[in-house]
Amino acid sequence: MIEAIQALAKRFFVIPYLILCGMASIHAAWQLWTADTFSVPWLGAYIAVTPVLVFVPLLYLLPLVYATPYIFVQLGAAMLGALLVVIELEPLPTLYGLVLGLGGVFTYVFWYSFLDRGDNPLLRIGRPLPGFTLSDAEGRDVHSTAFLGKKTVFVFYRGSWCPLCRTQLRDFLHSSAEFAEKGVQLVLVGPQPSAMGTRLLSEHGVQAQILFDRDLSAARTLGIEHRNGVPFGVWWSESPNTVLPSLLYVDESGVIRYTDLPENFRAGPRPGPFLKALEGCCQ
């Protein structure tokens, strides 16, 4: 019950938070521009709330799949802004700096970003991968048994609405030749079709499959469904539910040999660490 309430709270956090930060940033900039004298508290409010508004668009524009280092810029700006607003403690800039800036960024980093996933006994190393059914771009069923006889990596991503997932998808596709060289078939699984993924697949050298778990039945079978995981306001997602980002590597007989089940969506599965692990222990 508590986990369900927390998931619902997270669903309604990020978009309203960004809107409030946008309003506060515009208001603080206006106060700085129109004031007769320079205001340190309003400067602090602007510094505290504005970086998060820059960071989110950059996720869509730049390949920031390794996004965690950039979070420290937001944390640093929020702390600096908070220090400036408390110099004079004017009510509104203090509210912006301490609550929206410092409080909001810390809430995003240390609460919202975590996936609250517990131990998953279905996906333990050495266990057979549970059977599930996906679909291809034409809507035809593809059962997991179709991949038996060859080493396979299944990468489940949250959806094309997620900027980190979009970059992650591109990262795996660009590394597909390395998977093929090691005799591993790469299967990327999303909740809904991705035009970007289909376009990348058509590029020369991409050796992978992109399949879909449209009703999240596979995610439920594997215990990686993320209920209310799509932020409120993402209208182009077909469902409020999505999948927990996961990487599953199985051998020719369908036994799980390696997993990457991150606790934080900002640190989702990446091809580099898996390929390195494959060389060391998973062949």
Rank of each mutant, 00 (worst) to 15 (best):
P16I: 04
Y17M: 10
I19W: 06
S25N: 08
H27D: 11
W30Y: 15
Q31C: 14
W33L: 14
T34V: 15
T37A: 13
F38S: 10
A45D: 08
Y46K: 04
V49G: 12
V52S: 09
L53T: 06
V54Y: 15
F55P: 08
P57N: 06
L61V: 14
P63C: 12
P69E: 12
P69R: 11
Y70K: 07
F72I: 04
F72T: 12
F72P: 04
V73K: 07
Q74T: 06
Q74F: 08
G76I: 11
A77I: 01
L80A: 12
G81K: 00
L83S: 01
L84C: 02
V86L: 03
I87G: 03
I87N: 00
P91E: 00
P91L: 02
L92V: 09
Y108D: 02
Y112D: 02
D116W: 10
G118W: 04
N120K: 06
L122K: 15
L123N: 12
I125T: 14
G126L: 04
L129G: 06
P130H: 06
L134T: 11
L134C: 07
E138K: 12
D141A: 15
V142G: 09
A146L: 12
G149T: 10
K150W: 00
K150E: 13
K150N: 11
T152G: 08
V153R: 12
F154W: 14
